[in-house]
Design a protein around this nucleic acid. Sequence first.
DNA 1: GCTTGAATGTAACACTCGGTACATTATAAG
DNA 2: CTTATAATGTACCGAGTGTTACATTCAAGC
Lengths: 195, 195
Amino acid sequence: MPTRKATLLESLIAYLVRRGVADVSLRPMAAAVGTSARLLIFHFGSKERLLLEVLDEMQARLQRSLSDLLREPSLTRSAPLRQFWDWALKDANFAQLRVLYQLHILAAQDHKTYGRFLKRNSLNWLESVEAVLKPLQRSPALATLIVAVFDGLFIEVMSSGDRRRASAAIDEFIAMARKHTHGRRLVRKRAWARS
Amino acid sequence: MPTRKATLLESLIAYLVRRGVADVSLRPMAAAVGTSARLLIFHFGSKERLLLEVLDEMQARLQRSLSDLLREPSLTRSAPLRQFWDWALKDANFAQLRVLYQLHILAAQDHKTYGRFLKRNSLNWLESVEAVLKPLQRSPALATLIVAVFDGLFIEVMSSGDRRRASAAIDEFIAMARKHTHGRRLVRKRAWARS
DNA sequence: GCTTGAATGTAACACTCGGTACATTATAAG
DNA sequence: CTTATAATGTACCGAGTGTTACATTCAAGC
């Protein structure tokens, strides 16, 4: 049976995923999950520890979900980048990634306040991408570009909600990259592993 | 002679550009610009109107700076996208763009709170880019991709500060795009105008 | 000098914030 | 039944929030 705290944590994830992490305060958060500020402090110790637990759990789930993606033998012939993109747009993953992107941006201007909530290498796909590029095309520039395309399109979906257009754009990029590297696959599919 | 309010607005821009717009409050802001919360309310009416005025002014300055870029006859042979990129990395432009990107992300999850501070079409380069593509290569997918590359790389610079790597990445993209479109220039230089 | 209006200081208002003290209920184990 | 422990309610603390009331200073115009 799930402990009280575990069920609370579940509701809190749902709440924060809806609402984002900017300007959260205890009492509205407590009301939204059907309890009191008193109880949140009781179960989690402090607001800071509460957020740490919730965000850690979110990042752990993303990590597990990503591992699942990598373990399954790739059924389709689509490019690894496109598979990764489809994974990111799945509802559960998207909602949590959105919060992490927001956190990422907040930390960029106020690292003292928000930096501690970002586990290192969360949302930092750079090394993974670079490691996975074929030696011939391995370069920080290309890896940075790939990550930027992903980030930029994800944010586009966050803002406009237009998944079809963004997905068309990522296909356009994959086509460009294929031509650029003379028909070689842009990235191999293994080893998004160490994200 | 600049009115008191104008000099305050100047300091406020500098303060918010340093600090970002998340979790601002009157008294610390007032202290940072050498006045009191009382005076800020006196001059601007309310905290909300203050932020509106400051952010409007920031966006207006960006708009003017961008117009300057477009008016000057392009001295270099570099791609329009690269010229735009260099413009965005200029210190004054970068600092203000950073705030608008943060605002953009905050509004994506909490439109009710932050949406009103975003003037429509600020940071929305999509139509401009699409209008500027040569008819042969004009497509929502390509325009979306170009915007996403720019956004993603800008955010990368916001987070890591590594301008050289990001600039190399945008050059890589331009090279890819040139090859993709058989040597035609990716975008013409006029008409980033209607941003 | 007097008046007017902008600029400023001091102090407070009602409210929310994160967090705590203290007591009480519920539940389960002995 | 007693006892230990988890869960909850009520009420409050000091600090910070945006905003306002009221008084005062200061500079310019008549």
